[in-house]
Amino acid sequence: MKPSPRWAAAAAVCAAALLAPLLLSETQLPVYIVLVLAACVVTGLSMLMGYAGQVSLGQAAFFMIGGYTAALIALEELPTWLGLAASPLVAAVLAAVIGVPLLRLRGHQLAFATLAVQLILLNLVGQQEWTGGDIGLQGVPRLAIGGYEFADDVAYAYLALAVLGLTVLITRNIVKSRPGRGLRALATSEVAAESSGVPVAGYKLAVFSLSAGFAGLAGGVYAFYFGYVAPSSFPVLLSFEYVVMVVVGGAGTIYGALVGATAVTLLLQLLNNIGTMEGMPAAAPTVLSYAVYGVLLVLVVLFMPRGLVPTAAAWWERRRSARPRGDDPASDGAERPAPAPASV
């Protein structure tokens, strides 16, 4: 049996991801870890945008919830693994609770509502004494699971990769399952899905809280890795950044999420290197990164509205079917782009 190109690609991506921590330099590793954590958040958000057809402009809020949960538990001298385990749960439960009223909103209303939720949470967290106010929580101990302490960057890189692997596996199984097909109907038209028996409200809430759970888990790792959390670590712009990643990669696909997170992070890093070169003004890195977000978002939305991965996949399909005989055209549809873009 010949391995299909899809499996070969997946294997190559995995191998590269696993080798990277060993090959990257000391300065590159933190970037890599942040990239992998962003990919976790973006995978969930991509599902929300691609399947439930809804944009969240406040996804960083759940990342923040996860981070604070882990930090608070670890600082209470409770086992640190408990903090990591609790971070996705708390985020998911919070999303489920606020999701009940919030998900009655759609499109741009939901976008603004999620943005509002994040602004409110940021504000509240910045005011409370037990969250450390504006300064946040410092001195979060290192994560230890079963006697093994995650001490250095390489260990955290593999931890982040494990979390991403879990996220991808869960997402993949959900998308391929029967409810997953119902979800896809949801993306095209809520009304049509509802009338064909899909429990729309329940599915939307499930996807919303699952995506929050992914973000929360990533936030937990973040807290242990950096050792502190503060409101300024989770700005609204971070939420926008996740949306940029989803849009660039292509909503509703796992590969899209990975490609989007990677492409945006690498591009930013490249420009950051240029911006910090000698002779550049101090503001250059910031200016360049904002310019990249802006230009990238506009270009992709206008000229590649389905995102990088689905566009490339469609191009590949066309080329293949143009050839006289294509090999196994009916591969599984799991990674296919969702039919409709998120409606705003």
């Binding site: 499109g107 741009h108 976008a111 926008f240 949306v243 940029v244 849009v247 904002y290 310019a291 977000y293 802006g294 230009v295 990238l296 978002l297 506009v298 939305v301 206008l302 509205p305 873009p341 998120a342 409606s343 705003v344």
Partner: peptide
């Protein structure tokens, strides 16, 4: 209109 909203978000960044 959806794409346009995302585009205006991008223009805010720019």
């Amino acid at each position: 209109a959806q794409s346009a909203l995302i585009a205006t978000l991008g223009l805010g960044f720019a």
